[in-house]
Design a protein around this nucleic acid. Structure first.
Length: 555
RNA sequence: GCGCCUGUAGCUCAGUGGACAGAGCAUCGGUCUUCGGAACCGAGGGUCGGGGGUUCGAAUCCCUCCAGGCGUGCCA
């Protein structure tokens, strides 16, 4: 970063002013006050602080007076054209137009890294997402998980975290057993043997296709095996095939993981037993009703939870305890899990287990997202994983493309039980917001190409010529990208990217209308505007890439 | 019963302590087609689920009620 963001700079100015005002006895001595800077309504200012309003009571002065004292103590800054107190006690800041125009040069110089910030400070962060059971193809719900996780990972990397992406493979347990039993039934059926899919089995057609693949590879050799052995082999084969399919689905979405971590591996390594042993040593384990329990009743949970079933098998929860301990053991200081809201009850007990093992549960943040409804032909598609009646990632990407898929899945707050309208996402019309952003990018490219053909030289630009309101409005938005990346990294709110990009595209289109870029009669202005268009292209492309979308040159 | 999430314009959704509550789409009316019209401008449309409270200030925080989704000791 060659320069500090405007917001961070104003924050520092206010902090200095506050100290200076106290030093000069224009304000009484204060305990440390956290200074906040926010975006102001555009007609009032660019940035604003409510510092004086919040201080008013403590210093026993009217807010407006406090604001005026602070304004008077503000250092000069090349960033600002104006700082003023405004009723009822806000401190408003206007960015300098000359400073804004100069940012075009900074943005161009930073190129595809413009937008980076340093909230992470290089800290090792792990984000675990996806992590759907490998018992069926990825559903659109998992798609939301993966798109949210991947977009966050991209933003966190831009915020200077050392990001590792991991998919947790839940390859043991009762659901996998059911998966294997279903596969065996389908395999037998393909050989003309009378067999039935278990009542709790996976009825989806994909299981027949899996069985066919096994048949192709193994012929009838599994038919004569003892059932337990056949099940074990089908478990392995089916798992491998499902993982390949899931990996392919992720690739369709443009997502790659650094690690696929297997629950079976954790168990084989003795890490699950080890975690249980450690909890026992710490007096946090009880045995009753034939099972082993994690005792958390007096701590963070309202109930105890089973670690080892009466059958002797460890639960998913026990493995997850070992898994989270292993994450920290590998040196990640910040952990993020992306889970569907149906797992929210799992959060307190995982955190309780971290505390019980002597770790700081605050290291883990769980991003919960609500479920996805799908609209097709204007009607809600009923889904059931058990019957195999699901809308898959593959179907959606095939129908609407990867860009629209990702856009729609990321553009809603994780807390919203979103509706995915397949027909809208598929439309290549002005009803579809996806193309609005991409079209703006394509327009920038088109102008830049044309400028080159017609012999304009943007390197000769005098940026001080940029003073049209449409130019400055676009710049005011563009300089907020590093602040946006910071906010998204802190709030884990990737959907804000979509809104930012949408607004920037709108500002660009308005600029395009109001400001002729290529004008042979005014080459100096054309050159400056070309630099601005070039910078706009960089920012639009960065937004699109952070969302995992393409930034097309032509549409 | 209890816990979490949600309820904002006709629809899909932003905004979670600040300034008269916003966007896209839809509707209606304009630009009329010289750098890409997949664009732009304007208009109408909301007791922010209801009620109470805290605060200088509440869509935002607290209480309560209503509605929907998800969950609630040996599925994950």
């Amino acid at each position: 970063m060659s320069t500090q963001s405007a917001r961070a700079h104003i924050h520092d100015l206010l902090t200095h002013a506050l100290l200076a005002a106290q030093r000069e006895n224009r304000l009484p001595p204060l305990a440390t006050t956290d200074v906040t800077v926010e975006y102001a309504p555009p007609e009032k200012a660019d940035y604003a602080s409510n510092l004086a309003l919040r201080l008013s009571r403590a210093v026993r002065m009217p807010p407006m007076q406090v604001a005026e004292v602070i304004v008077a103590a503000l250092p000069e800054s090349p960033y600002l054209a104006e700082a003023a107190a405004a009723p009822p006690g806000f401190i408003n800041f206007r960015l300098s137009e000359q400073w804004l125009a100069r940012q075009v040069g900074d943005i161009s110089a930073q190129g595809s890294t413009y937008g980076d910030c340093d909230v992470g400070g290089g800290a090792a962060l792990q984000i675990e997402f996806g992590s759907a059971n490998p018992t069926g193809p990825l559903t659109i719900g998992s798609g939301r998980n993966i798109v949210l996780g991947d977009t966050l990972a991209r933003v966190l990397a831009a915020a200077n975290f050392a990001v590792q992406r991991e998919y947790y493979v839940n390859d043991v347990g009762s659901q996998m057993d059911t998966f294997a039993r279903t596969l065996l039934a389908r395999y037998r059926q393909l050989h003309g043997v009378d067999a039935h899919v278990p009542a709790d089995g996976y009825a989806g057609e994909y299981m027949v296709e899996l069985a066919a693949q096994v048949k192709e590879a193994e012929g009838d050799s599994l038919l004569d095996l003892p059932e337990s052995e056949a099940l074990q082999q089908l478990h392995e084969r089916g798992l491998a095939l499902m993982l390949t399919s899931i990996r392919d689905d992720c690739a369709l979405l443009g997502v790659e993981f650094d690690e696929w971590l297997s629950q079976a591996w954790l168990e084989d390594e003795g890490r699950v037993q080890g975690a249980i042993d450690t909890l026992r040593e710490r007096g946090r384990v009880a045995e009753r009703e034939g099972a082993v329990w994690f005792v958390s009743t007096d701590v963070e949970e309202d109930k105890d939870n089973v670690l080892v079933r009466s059958t002797g098998d460890p639960t998913y929860f026990a493995a997850d305890i070992a898994y989270h301990a292993y994450k920290l053991e590998r040196g990640y200081t910040t952990l993020i899990d992306v889970w569907g809201a149906d797992h929210h009850g799992h959060v307190p007990r995982v955190k309780a287990s971290m505390a019980a093992l002597g770790h700081d549960p605050e290291r883990l943040t769980v991003l919960l997202y609500q479920l996805v409804r799908v609209l097709r032909g204007g009607e809600e598609v009923r889904m059931s994983k058990r019957t195999g009646d699901v809308v898959t990632v593959r179907e959606v990407v095939d129908e609407v493309g990867v860009d629209a898929s990702r856009y729609f899945l990321v553009a809603r707050s994780p807390d919203t039980a979103m509706t995915f309208d397949l027909d809208l996402a598929q439309q290549e019309s002005d009803e579809n917001p996806v193309y609005y952003i991409q079209y703006a990018h394509a327009r920038t490219v088109s102008i830049l190409d044309r400028a080159q053909q017609e012999g304009f030289d943007r390197d000769a630009a005098n940026l001080a010529l940029l003073r049209h309101p449409a130019e400055l409005d676009m710049l005011r938005h563009m300089v907020r990208l590093p602040e946006l990346v910071e906010d998204i990294a802190v709030q884990l709110a990737p959907h804000r990217l979509a809104f930012f990009a949408q607004e920037l595209a709108g500002l660009f289109h308005a600029f395009y209308r109001d400001c002729r870029v290529l004008d042979a009669d005014d080459r100096p202005l054309s050159h400056a505007r070309l630099q601005l268009v070039h910078a706009a292209r960089l920012v639009l492309a960065r937004c699109l890439h952070l969302m995992g979308m393409s930034a097309p040159d032509h549409m």
